[in-house]
Write a protein that binds this DNA or RNA. Structure first.
Length: 1012
RNA sequence: GCGGAUGUGGUGAAAUUGGUAGACACGCUAGACUUAGGAUCUAGUGCCGUGAGGUGUGUGGGUUCGAGUCCCUCCAUCCGCACCA
């Protein structure tokens, strides 16, 4: 029997498992290749056809690399901590571990059907204690580290303590919050006076109690406890990261999010901002992802400048990216929330300012951001001094300045900044012109390449020179310094949830201490309910002391880690998944090294991908890793969209008719069985080509005898009598129908009736000729939408594997187009791909299943086809062009079929080319060819140019660039000979009225162009 | 507003360094064949035109013997960022 994919695929799934075909070990004699797909969160819905797209692509690439002799690591696992399982636990009381286990089993079942070459012995699950033991261990490493800005490296906290012991805080240049010392509770440090600015001596340090030392160290650690404003989601009872909040609502669930001050664990990612930015140049990722990360990090270079407030000791610090425009400062604007507003406002401005601050506080940040047109602000009555001219500069407040960005204050240069210009113009503040040739009468001129004027020592300078001169002058005056600022904030690392990694920390006198390594992992204690407690403590507060397997100090940490903890390092664990002594052994880490190809969605651009890079850098600095970036090359697969089908329900209504007594039981379509029309009819009706009344007539003919029919006829006659029958309102309603009951837009009426009897069973279906039908001649319209249950457009891989086989599905998903692009899913084309595999297998075996392969010498043409295909497939895979490989194989199959080629010398290499795409079929054919070893490790066929050499070339001949005809000439012809032959050719005269061309271009072997 | 990506038949798309635009596949049309099988085979299928021919890669311009590809302009769609000082 020809191509029995069910039998073949089931056979090889079993065989591969039996033979451990995909087991990978470290083998230093081979070059390694690490191909990774982002691991999934195992949701209850299972996989739809969009998920495997990236898995298939990386699987094909992994198989290809294996054929090329690489030792390929290609693992899979599960990001199995997460909200949905916990939400389900809250609703049903089912332990999230149980739900997760069930979902994983379903995922595995689906994945197993698709023929992936995963080494399942390396599977990891972030929620298993064997795994999160090491997530906790990494947390401890980070806790015990500080960032040395001098060496630009993470260092163990012990080196910091040494420094404190020998020199105190002097000569320590650590990454810290600015003015961190203000957060220190000075009552606990009686020896620091009120003028304490964060510096202390070795003696100070040594005389501190352990508790005091811990409090100080907390401000240096790379993960630290601090009160921070967090996105609190009351409905979820938890804190969300910035990137988990979309439009003020939680990304998952869409619940409202508010700002709240909480004591939280944070990770000092801000210390790594510059390195995260710089090292983007060392990875091969898409420009868009890199750009998103650059945006997120948000580096701006400029200067911080101090303005002293006249008559106060206070200083306003601003950050500016244009210190060169310092002489154009006409006013200073503070955010309404700026702490100095209350201090400096003069008595007669007090009322106005208070009113403005009040009004601003009522506006959400979002409102303030979106309201660009309304310029608002208020003068404080106070002035500050220009650091160079000494000029008195008015201080305003305005809600266009955000408290959370920079220092919450700007030096306003209306001549060079449009917002400042708008503000100055609105409030009639004089604008100082500081650039030559700049017209600032209508708008600000933000250009940097115009020479400065009215700017004292900067006059005549422009661009970088001006900026540098300004900064050094500002520094000389002690009025500020050059500064680089980042938008990137430290990442909050606490979640008030149950289903996450416990933080390996306990508290003694409210000071956090780490659980010892030999006590790890701290596993999740059982609890009776998964909600926060009535006091608002996280769910873990429900666990009693004896429920914990590790309990130290006064209490354990009750927060768990966020979702990104486990996924920030999972690619490392695959290298050495069962190691109980280390998170990964040095030897294996050095062998497998970076991920060579990372396949995944672009939606993780600022979350997972940034955090993984961050943790990799920490672990590398601490000597645990030999590389600085986790993912060398990344490809982002596009989304596969659903193709929804719509049936057209024909409606009419007499509702709008007034002054006529109508029978209310027959006013509209809702009183009758529904009527569905064809998409063609719908188009004709809407364009006016067809008349609604014609459809109505047909319907009436079929309603005879039905309930309400007589009433309807009476109504219609009544209307006719009054000449109102044109008032009947018609409409067509689109209703989603399950794509499983639609084939090529044709509805399978019988099965649609069975699918939703309540709507369709009694319905009338009219075909394009307005005849009632139960056949498949009623057509739907379609639309491309996201796949979702409610749209009945979800296509599961299971259905397709059942119908066509995994090999067909694999090839088809690749054939759809470039992986990076989003595209609609359309089952129509899958037949063609299935036929290709069937046709290909017919080169090997006949209908009875007999092998037709012979040892006969292949024809020249067949060898040419083969080598052309080897070249194409190899080159295309090398440039990650998965889709074009399939068409290349199709062309080969078509050509070999035509050539009636059954020669082993051609078909064996062809099987190898097929193997990454259709591994089951390739394996079966390989065995049929008489091999006992698996095809998966066979050597990739070598390309031999000599088979492609042609003795004749078909030259396309163009006139003025337009191709007119082709001419076949010997390949060895020189330029001159080709020219001669073309001119002598009979058809040439037709396009060459003058007899001789102006010019002739001959590209040997390619093309001839005649210029007339 | 800034940044990134994309734009080619009825559909998914191909064209790798500028060199035959639309490969391959779907769909469609006509036909053949058949123990009807998501079969197979033949011919056709960008658009306009009976034809010769014309025209054609979002728009308009440019460079070139030759442009889907390079440069400039504008437009549309998607994504990211956004009073970011």
């Amino acid at each position: 029997m020809e191509y029995n994919f069910r039998e073949i695929e089931q056979k090889w799934i079993k065989e591969w498992r039996k033979r451990d075909t995909y087991k990978v070990t470290e083998d230093s004699s081979k070059e390694k290749f690490y191909a990774l797909s982002m691991f999934p969160y195992p949701s209850g819905a299972g996989l739809h056809v969009g998920h495997p797209l990236g898995y298939i692509a990386s699987d094909i690439y992994a198989r290809y690399k294996r054929h090329q002799g690489f030792n390929v690591l290609h693992p899979m696992g599960y990001d199995s901590f997460g909200l949905p399982a916990e939400q389900y636990a809250i609703e049903t009381g089912t332990h999230p571990a149980e739900t997760t286990e069930k979902n994983i089993a379903r995922y595995r079942e689906q994945l197993d059907k698709l023929g992936f070459n995963y080494d399942w012995s390396r599977e990891v699950r972030t929620s298993s204690p064997e795994y999160y033991k090491w997530t906790q261990w990494i947390f401890k490493q980070i806790f015990n580290s500080w960032y040395n800005n001098d060496t630009k490296k993470t260092e163990p906290i012990s080196t910091l303590i040494e420094k404190f012991n020998s020199n105190g805080s002097y000569n320590v240049n650590a990454a810290q919050d600015e003015e961190w010392y203000k957060a220190l509770d000075l009552e606990k440090f009686p020896f620091f006076g009120e003028y304490f600015v964060g510096e202390f001596t070795a003696t100070d340090w040594q005389s501190m109690t352990e508790e005091q030392q811990q409090l100080v160290l907390m401000h240096y650690r790379l993960t630290y406890l601090a009160d921070s404003w967090v996105n609190w989601c009351p409905a979820l009872g938890t804190v969300l990261a910035n990137d988990e909040v979309k439009d003020g609502k939680s990304e998952r669930g869409g619940h409202p999010v508010v700002q709240k001050l909480m004591r939280q664990w944070s990770m000092r990612i801000s210390a790594f901002a510059q390195r995260l930015l710089d090292d983007l140049d060392t990875v091969d990722w898409s420009d868009s992802i890199k750009e998103i990360q650059r945006n997120w990090i948000g580096r701006s270079k400029g200067a911080s400048v101090k303005f002293s407030v006249a008559g106060h000791g206070e200083i306003i610090e601003v950050f500016t990216t244009r210190p060169d425009t310092i002489f154009g400062v006409d006013f200073v604007t503070l955010a309404p929330e700026h702490p100095l507003v209350n201090v400096i406002t003069t008595a007669d401005q007090k009322a106005d300012i208070n009113e403005y601050v009040e009004a601003a506080s009522l506006k959400s940040e979002r409102d303030r951001q979106s309201d660009v047109k309304n310029i608002t602000g208020c003068f404080t009555g106070a002035y500050c001094e220009h650091p160079f001219t000494g000029k008195q500069i008015p201080i305003w407040i305005g809600d266009y300045v955000l408290a959370s960005y920079g220092t919450g204050a700007v030096m306003a240069v209306p001549s060079g900044d449009q917002r400042d210009w708008d503000f100055a113009t609105h409030f009639k503040i004089d604008i100082t012109a500081i650039m030559e040739d700049a017209d600032i009468s209508e708008q600000a001129d933000a250009s940097k390449d115009k020479p400065l004027m009215n700017s004292d020592f900067l006059n005549g300078l422009k661009g970088k020179k001006a900026v540098n001169a300004a900064i050094s002058a500002i520094m000389d005056k002690d009025a500020g310094r050059g500064k680089v600022q980042y938008r990137l904030r430290d990442a909050v690392f606490s979640r008030q949830r149950y289903w996450g990694e416990p933080v390996p920390v306990y508290f003694k006198n409210d000071i956090p201490y780490l659980i010892e390594d030999d006590q790890l992992p701290v596993t999740l204690p059982p609890i009776d309910e998964y909600l926060p407690t009535e006091d608002g403590d996280p769910p873990l507060a429900r666990a009693k002391k004896e429920d914990w397997d590790v309990f130290e100090g006064d209490r354990m940490e009750l927060n768990t880690m966020p979702g990104w903890a486990g996924s920030s390092w999972y690619f490392l664990r695959y290298m050495d998944p069962h190691n109980t002594e280390e998170f990964v052994s040095e030897e294996k880490m050095k062998y497998w090294n970076q991920v060579d190809l990372y396949m995944g969605g672009a939606e993780h651009a600022t979350g997972h991908l940034l955090y993984s890079r961050f943790w990799t850098k920490i672990l590398c600095d601490l000597g645990h890793l030999s590389f600085n970036e986790p993912f060398k090359k990344m490809i982002n697969q596009g989304m596969i969209l659903g193709r929804s089908s719509f049936a057209h329900r024909f409606n009419w209504s007499l509702d709008k008719i007034k002054n006529v007594e109508l029978d209310k039981t027959a006013l509209g379509a809702e009183h009758f069985n529904p009527v569905f029309i064809c998409s063609g009819t719908k188009a004709k009706l809407e364009s006016g080509e067809a008349d609604y009344n014609d459809v109505m007539k047909v319907i009436l003919g079929h309603y005879k005898g039905q309930k309400n029919y007589d009433a309807l006829m009476k109504n219609l006659e009544l209307l006719k009598a009054k000449n109102l029958d044109s008032e009947c309102a018609f409409s067509i309603q689109n209703i989603h129908v399950d794509i499983n009951h639609v084939d090529n837009d044709a509805m399978d009426v019988e099965s649609i009736k069975a699918w939703k009897p309540a709507v369709f069973d009694s319905a009338l279906f009219l075909n394009g000729s307005l005849e009632v039908t139960n056949g498949s001649d009623v057509y739907c319209d379609f639309d491309v939408e996201k796949m979702s249950k409610s749209k009945y457009n979800v296509q599961t891989p299971d259905d397709l594997v059942e119908k066509f086989g995994a090999d067909t599905l694999r090839c088809y998903e690749m054939f759809l187009g470039p992986v990076e692009q989003s595209k609609p899913w359309d089952t129509k084309g899958i037949n063609g791909v299935h036929n290709f595999l069937r046709k290909l297998s017919r080169l090997f075996i006949d209908k009875e299943g007999n092998l037709m392969v012979t040892d006969a010498e292949p024809s020249k043409d067949s060898m040419k086809t083969l080598h052309k295909t080897i070249k194409k497939v190899t080159e295309d895979l090398n440039r990650f062009s998965w889709n074009t490989v399939v068409s290349g194989m199709m062309i080969a199959t078509n050509e070999l079929t035509e050539q009636k080629c059954h020669s082993r010398a051609v078909l064996e290499p062809l099987t190898l080319l097929l193997s990454p795409y259709a591994p089951h079929l390739a394996e079966e054919l390989w065995e049929k060819l008489g091999h006992t070893e698996s095809v998966t490790t066979e050597e990739w066929p070598a390309f031999d140019e000599s088979h492609l050499v042609e003795s004749e070339i078909h030259y396309p001949v163009s006139f003025n660039g337009k191709m007119r005809f082709k001419i076949t000439l010997p390949a060895e012809f020189t330029k001159e000979q080709v020219e001669e032959a073309v001119l002598a050719y009979e058809k040439t005269a037709q396009y060459l009225p003058d007899g001789s061309p102006k010019k002739m271009i001959v590209v040997p072997g390619r093309i001839v162009n005649v210029v007339v």
